[in-house]
Amino acid sequence: MRSKILVISIILFFSSISPSSLPDFSLKKIDGTQFSISEVLGKKIIIIDFWATWCKPCKKLLKKLDEIGREFSDQVEVLAISTDESSSFARIESYIKSRGYRFTVLLDPDSNVSGIFNPAGTIPYTMIIDLSKKIVFTHTGYVPGFEKKIREKINELTDK
Protein backbone atom coordinates (compact mmCIF):
# COMPACT_ATOMS: atom_id res chain seq x y z
CA MET A 1 0.00 0.00 0.00
CA ARG A 2 2.83 2.37 0.85
CA SER A 3 4.26 1.75 -2.61
CA LYS A 4 1.01 2.78 -4.29
CA ILE A 5 0.83 5.94 -2.23
CA LEU A 6 4.44 6.72 -3.10
CA VAL A 7 3.83 6.36 -6.87
CA ILE A 8 0.70 8.51 -6.82
CA SER A 9 2.37 11.13 -4.62
CA ILE A 10 5.33 11.38 -6.98
CA ILE A 11 3.03 11.70 -10.00
CA LEU A 12 0.94 14.35 -8.26
CA PHE A 13 3.98 16.29 -7.11
CA PHE A 14 5.72 16.45 -10.44
CA SER A 15 2.52 16.92 -12.43
CA SER A 16 1.62 19.95 -10.36
CA ILE A 17 4.77 21.84 -11.27
CA SER A 18 5.04 20.84 -14.92
CA PRO A 19 7.85 22.99 -16.35
CA SER A 20 10.99 22.27 -18.32
CA SER A 21 14.02 23.61 -20.04
CA LEU A 22 16.40 21.58 -22.08
CA PRO A 23 19.52 20.37 -20.29
CA ASP A 24 22.87 20.34 -22.02
CA PHE A 25 23.86 17.11 -23.73
CA SER A 26 26.36 16.11 -26.37
CA LEU A 27 26.34 13.38 -29.02
CA LYS A 28 28.52 12.37 -31.93
CA LYS A 29 27.76 13.57 -35.44
CA ILE A 30 28.02 11.18 -38.38
CA ASP A 31 31.52 12.47 -39.12
CA GLY A 32 32.60 11.33 -35.63
CA THR A 33 32.95 14.80 -34.11
CA GLN A 34 31.18 15.75 -30.90
CA PHE A 35 28.23 18.13 -30.94
CA SER A 36 27.04 19.84 -27.79
CA ILE A 37 23.52 21.23 -27.75
CA SER A 38 24.90 24.25 -25.88
CA GLU A 39 26.37 25.37 -29.25
CA VAL A 40 22.87 26.37 -30.37
CA LEU A 41 20.78 26.33 -27.19
CA GLY A 42 19.36 29.78 -26.50
CA LYS A 43 20.81 31.12 -29.77
CA LYS A 44 18.29 29.58 -32.15
CA ILE A 45 14.95 27.84 -31.95
CA ILE A 46 15.76 24.12 -31.98
CA ILE A 47 13.74 21.32 -33.55
CA ILE A 48 14.83 17.91 -32.28
CA ASP A 49 13.61 14.85 -34.13
CA PHE A 50 14.22 11.24 -33.02
CA TRP A 51 14.19 8.92 -36.02
CA ALA A 52 15.57 5.68 -37.49
CA THR A 53 16.42 4.48 -40.99
CA TRP A 54 13.85 1.65 -40.86
CA CYS A 55 10.98 4.07 -40.05
CA LYS A 56 9.14 5.32 -43.16
CA PRO A 57 7.12 8.09 -41.46
CA CYS A 58 10.41 9.34 -40.00
CA LYS A 59 11.92 9.68 -43.47
CA LYS A 60 8.96 11.71 -44.70
CA LEU A 61 9.27 13.98 -41.70
CA LEU A 62 13.03 14.45 -42.28
CA LYS A 63 12.27 15.87 -45.73
CA LYS A 64 9.82 18.36 -44.22
CA LEU A 65 12.21 19.32 -41.44
CA ASP A 66 14.93 19.97 -44.01
CA GLU A 67 12.58 22.34 -45.84
CA ILE A 68 11.71 24.12 -42.59
CA GLY A 69 15.38 24.31 -41.62
CA ARG A 70 16.25 25.94 -44.96
CA GLU A 71 13.31 28.35 -44.81
CA PHE A 72 14.13 29.53 -41.31
CA SER A 73 17.90 29.01 -41.52
CA ASP A 74 18.73 32.15 -39.54
CA GLN A 75 16.37 31.35 -36.71
CA VAL A 76 15.96 27.59 -36.54
CA GLU A 77 18.39 24.71 -36.01
CA VAL A 78 17.18 21.21 -36.86
CA LEU A 79 18.81 18.30 -35.03
CA ALA A 80 17.91 14.83 -36.26
CA ILE A 81 18.88 12.29 -33.61
CA SER A 82 19.16 8.79 -35.00
CA THR A 83 18.14 5.96 -32.69
CA ASP A 84 19.51 3.33 -35.08
CA GLU A 85 21.85 0.73 -33.69
CA SER A 86 25.57 1.32 -34.12
CA SER A 87 25.62 -1.39 -36.78
CA SER A 88 23.65 0.98 -39.06
CA PHE A 89 25.94 4.03 -38.95
CA ALA A 90 27.02 3.67 -42.59
CA ARG A 91 23.39 3.41 -43.68
CA ILE A 92 22.54 6.66 -41.89
CA GLU A 93 25.40 8.55 -43.49
CA SER A 94 24.60 7.41 -47.02
CA TYR A 95 20.87 8.13 -46.58
CA ILE A 96 21.42 11.69 -45.38
CA LYS A 97 24.11 12.49 -47.94
CA SER A 98 22.08 11.09 -50.84
CA ARG A 99 19.20 13.43 -50.00
CA GLY A 100 21.44 16.44 -49.54
CA TYR A 101 19.88 17.31 -46.18
CA ARG A 102 21.59 20.20 -44.45
CA PHE A 103 20.48 19.66 -40.87
CA THR A 104 22.75 18.20 -38.21
CA VAL A 105 22.47 14.46 -37.70
CA LEU A 106 23.42 13.08 -34.30
CA LEU A 107 23.92 9.48 -33.26
CA ASP A 108 22.39 8.09 -30.09
CA PRO A 109 22.92 4.33 -30.39
CA ASP A 110 22.95 3.79 -26.65
CA SER A 111 19.70 5.77 -26.14
CA ASN A 112 21.24 7.91 -23.43
CA VAL A 113 19.45 10.99 -24.80
CA SER A 114 16.35 9.48 -26.42
CA GLY A 115 15.84 7.40 -23.27
CA ILE A 116 15.25 10.62 -21.34
CA PHE A 117 13.01 12.51 -23.72
CA ASN A 118 11.30 9.62 -25.46
CA PRO A 119 11.37 6.66 -23.07
CA ALA A 120 8.39 5.07 -24.84
CA GLY A 121 10.65 4.67 -27.87
CA THR A 122 7.92 5.40 -30.44
CA ILE A 123 9.28 7.33 -33.41
CA PRO A 124 9.31 9.86 -34.95
CA TYR A 125 9.27 12.00 -31.83
CA THR A 126 9.58 15.76 -32.28
CA MET A 127 10.44 18.48 -29.78
CA ILE A 128 10.73 22.25 -30.23
CA ILE A 129 12.88 24.33 -27.87
CA ASP A 130 12.46 28.09 -27.81
CA LEU A 131 15.09 30.78 -27.25
CA SER A 132 14.59 30.70 -23.50
CA LYS A 133 15.64 27.00 -23.68
CA LYS A 134 12.13 25.82 -22.85
CA ILE A 135 10.61 22.74 -24.43
CA VAL A 136 7.48 24.27 -25.93
CA PHE A 137 6.24 21.47 -28.17
CA THR A 138 6.38 17.68 -28.24
CA HIS A 139 4.71 15.27 -30.65
CA THR A 140 4.80 11.57 -31.48
CA GLY A 141 4.40 10.31 -35.05
CA TYR A 142 4.12 11.78 -38.50
CA VAL A 143 1.18 11.94 -40.86
CA PRO A 144 1.16 14.26 -43.90
CA GLY A 145 0.27 17.77 -42.84
CA PHE A 146 1.91 17.54 -39.42
CA GLU A 147 4.61 19.90 -40.71
CA LYS A 148 1.92 22.59 -40.77
CA LYS A 149 1.73 22.35 -36.99
CA ILE A 150 5.49 22.79 -36.76
CA ARG A 151 5.44 25.81 -39.07
CA GLU A 152 2.66 27.38 -37.01
CA LYS A 153 4.70 26.90 -33.85
CA ILE A 154 7.85 28.29 -35.46
CA ASN A 155 5.94 31.30 -36.81
CA GLU A 156 4.46 31.87 -33.36
CA LEU A 157 7.92 31.76 -31.78
CA THR A 158 9.62 33.94 -34.40
CA ASP A 159 6.85 36.56 -34.27
CA LYS A 160 7.50 37.17 -30.58
Binding site: A52, W54, K56, P57, G121, T122, P124, G141
Partner: peptide, 8 residues
Protein backbone atom coordinates in the same frame (compact mmCIF):
# COMPACT_ATOMS: atom_id res chain seq x y z
CA UNK B 1 4.57 1.16 -38.44
CA UNK B 2 0.94 2.19 -38.12
CA UNK B 3 -0.88 5.42 -37.48
CA UNK B 4 2.22 7.37 -38.53
CA UNK B 5 4.32 5.81 -35.79
CA UNK B 6 6.90 3.07 -35.67
CA UNK B 7 7.95 0.82 -32.84
CA UNK B 8 9.23 -2.64 -32.18
Amino acid sequence: CSGGQCYV
